[in-house]
Computed example of a mutant assay.
Amino acid sequence: MSGSRVTSQSVRYRERLWVPWWWWPLGLGVATLIAKEVNMGVRTLPPWLPYAVLGAVAAGVLLWLGRTEVRVIADGSAVEVWAGQAHLPASVVRRSAEIPRTAKSAALGRQLDPAAYVLHRPWVGPLVLLVLDDPDDPTPYWLISARHPERVLSALRS
């Protein structure tokens, strides 16, 4: 078995930060409205074409907006937090906390350190705060959007 590696990775927590369900009818409604305008202005197109193209574009944009994932993965005794494409070993997390929706604007506003890593999705209420203790990393902390921050913190600590 050369070239292959057997790992004992287990996903402790996984959450995809999808857009809210009500964005879908809104997005498809806007696409329908624009398609109707195109049909009224360009009579040489087949009538179904603007609806198909703009409906697919709207669906693609909504899926693209909800592509981000937050994960906590354990590989043996090592635990890592993944936020989008960035990952962080739990061994460098000194403190962690949940930032409720009510404190979100302060955490992302006047209290935000410009060197912090932020994965923010406006449609997700609470945040997870991970304060780092890594002398090799200039990032003081991570702020990550999560619908269930208590589950992220529990998976990180267990």
Results as ranks from 00 to 15, higher is better:
Met1Lys: 11
Met1Phe: 10
Gly3Val: 05
Gly3Cys: 07
Ser4Tyr: 13
Arg5Gln: 10
Arg5Glu: 13
Val6Thr: 15
Thr7Phe: 10
Thr7Trp: 06
Ser8Phe: 10
Ser8Asp: 12
Ser10Arg: 15
Ser10Cys: 11
Val11Ala: 10
Tyr13Arg: 01
Arg16Leu: 06
Trp21Phe: 09
Trp21Thr: 08
Pro25Ile: 00
Gly27Lys: 01
Gly29Ile: 00
Val30Leu: 14
Leu33Asn: 11
Leu33Phe: 14
Ile34Trp: 06
Lys36Gln: 12
Val38Met: 05
Asn39Ile: 05
Met40Asp: 14
Met40Leu: 14
Gly41Trp: 14
Gly41Cys: 09
Arg43Phe: 07
Arg43Glu: 11
Arg43Tyr: 09
Leu45Lys: 04
Pro47His: 12
Trp48Met: 15
Trp48Ala: 15
Trp48Leu: 15
Pro50Thr: 05
Tyr51Ser: 07
Ala56Arg: 01
Ala56Pro: 04
Gly60Gln: 00
Leu63Trp: 08
Leu63Met: 08
Gly66Glu: 00
Arg67Ser: 14
Val70Tyr: 03
Val72Glu: 01
Val72His: 05
Ala74Lys: 09
Ala74Met: 06
Asp75Ala: 12
Asp75Leu: 10
Ser77Val: 09
Ser77His: 10
Ala78Leu: 12
Glu80Met: 13
Val81Lys: 00
Val81Ile: 15
Trp82Ser: 08
Ala83Met: 05
Gly84Glu: 02
Gly84Trp: 03
Gln85Pro: 09
Ala90Cys: 11
Ala90Leu: 07
Val93Cys: 08
Arg94Val: 02
Arg95Gly: 05
Ala97Cys: 07
Ala97Ile: 09
Glu98Ser: 15
Glu98Met: 14
Arg101Ser: 11
Ala103Gly: 14
Lys104Trp: 09
Ala106Thr: 13
Ala106Cys: 06
Ala107Cys: 07
Ala107Asp: 05
Leu108Lys: 02
Leu108Val: 08
Gly109Val: 06
Gln111Trp: 13
Leu112Ile: 11
Leu112Ala: 15
Asp113His: 10
Asp113Glu: 07
Pro114Lys: 09
Pro114Ile: 07
Pro114Arg: 14
Ala115Asp: 12
Ala115Val: 04
Leu119Trp: 06
Leu119Thr: 01
Leu119Pro: 00
His120Tyr: 15
His120Glu: 14
Arg121Glu: 13
Arg121Tyr: 06
Arg121Ser: 07
Val124Tyr: 01
Val124Leu: 08
Val124Ser: 03
Gly125Pro: 04
Pro126Phe: 08
Pro126Ser: 15
Leu127Gly: 04
Leu129Phe: 11
Leu129His: 13
Leu129Trp: 10
Leu130His: 02
Val131Asn: 02
Val131Asp: 09
Val131Glu: 12
Val131Thr: 12
Val131Arg: 04
Asp134Gln: 05
Asp134Met: 01
Pro135Arg: 07
Thr139Ile: 07
Pro140Leu: 03
Pro140Asp: 02
Pro140Val: 03
Tyr141Pro: 01
Trp142Lys: 01
Leu143Ala: 02
Ile144Asp: 03
Ile144Gln: 05
Ser145Met: 06
Ser145Gln: 05
Ala146Thr: 06
Arg147Phe: 03
His148Trp: 13
Arg151Pro: 08
Val152Pro: 02
Ala155Ile: 02
Ala155Arg: 03
Leu156Gln: 03
Arg157His: 14
Arg157Asp: 12
Ser158Tyr: 13
